[in-house]
Amino acid sequence: MPRRGLLRTAVVGMSAAAFGGSLWRGAAHADPAQPGPGPYGALGSADSNGLRLPGGFTGRVVARSGERVVNSSYTWHNAPDGGACFRDGAGWVYVSNSEIDPSGGAGAIRFDSSGTITGAHRILSGTRLNCAGGATPWNTWLSCEEVSRGYVYETDPYGVRPAVRRDALGRFKHEAAAADPVRRAVYLTEDESSGCLYRFLPAVWGDLSAGTLQVLTAGSATSGPYSWTDVPDPDGSPTATRSQVAGAKKFSGGEGCHYADDRLWFTTKGDNRVWQLNLRDDTYELAYDDSLVSGGAPLTGVDNVTGSSSGDLFVAEDGGSMDICVITPDGVVAPFLRLQGQSGSEITGPAFAPDGSRLYFSSQRGTSGSSSGGITYEVTGPFRR
């Protein structure tokens, strides 16, 4: 996202962040979210790290680019980007991409059950502009290259097994990924001004070495029915994947995506929108559009996205007011947190710990405005569950 940017059987952290079902099921074809009082109240004054939080919440820095992570020999990578949490015994692991070129890759921090950092390690090296990605139900992290004809790499959050390049997921300017265990699909966003939304259907669920890449086809409206069409040449050469299928719906700069409860949410930065796919009835609509907000829009520069078990959607800003905003199931959007003094950065990698009590995220360029100034945070408090 340039600024215009050992398999375990334990339950993956993303399952703890799944949306509550009944709330969003009743929201089909609802109007896009509008500003209102957030569920956590007003933001307080900035703490010593420039972090403004609602009452009852506290924050801390867990890593800084170029500095050794406590209780480890790993130097935290530059430009931390997309992230996710995975269970690790009684604790968890937070993984984070590095959006630099060359030598991007990804790293991870281990936490015990009390939230104490117990180590950190590298999980991917030698790749380029690793932007966002997504977790799989079989506890791997899909790290996506945001370059022309980029790849997706399947990595081991625990640092035991080597990463594997997954060519079958197509070669394009990858952004984020989200796994759907019901339809056994992996959804993929594309960070192009005329990008597409894709899904990959593995030949065998749990094995991404082979399968079918498809692109979403639909009309030009902001809501309606959609379908999926096979991409003839996932390698994307000589014709880019987004240009191979007539009727492929174009999206302005695909960013984060999140799956839960038979729905997919994804963001587009070019028009500051959050889209919702109802995967049960094959329809799509807008969950948020800043141009449709009455008064000032609280959420601009939409980027990475995650969800909590209560049904709240958390959307990070690239620019804007440097907020993470919450969109509630009843259609209210409001700031949840804000970083002050970091206007030259962007917020990346929001992800909840498996029990939903802690939120991790990064300021990609921190206070310096440079990729070497990245800061990764943890926020703890009474999150709705």
Rank of each mutant, 00 (worst) to 15 (best):
R8P: 00
V12M: 02
V12D: 14
V12W: 01
S15A: 15
S22I: 09
S22Q: 12
A28H: 07
H29M: 10
A33D: 03
Y40G: 10
A42D: 15
S48W: 03
G55A: 15
V62L: 13
V62I: 15
N78S: 14
D81H: 13
A84C: 05
S96L: 08
D101W: 00
S103L: 05
D112A: 01
S113T: 05
G115L: 04
T116D: 12
T116G: 06
A120K: 05
R122F: 00
G126H: 01
T127V: 11
T127E: 12
R128S: 14
N130E: 09
C131G: 06
A132E: 13
G133L: 11
G134R: 04
W141T: 05
W141G: 03
C144S: 13
S148V: 14
T155W: 02
G159N: 08
F172N: 07
A176D: 15
A178F: 10
A179T: 14
D180V: 14
V182P: 03
L188R: 04
S194L: 11
F200N: 07
T212G: 10
T212D: 12
L213T: 05
Q214E: 15
V215L: 09
A218F: 09
T222K: 07
G224Q: 08
P234L: 11
G247R: 13
C257G: 04
W265R: 00
G270V: 09
V274M: 06
N278C: 07
A287P: 00
G301N: 11
G301K: 11
V302N: 05
N304V: 03
T306I: 07
S309K: 14
L313I: 15
E317L: 01
S321H: 08
L337K: 04
L339E: 00
P354S: 10
G356K: 12
F361A: 06
Q364N: 13
S370I: 00
Y377Q: 07
Y377L: 14
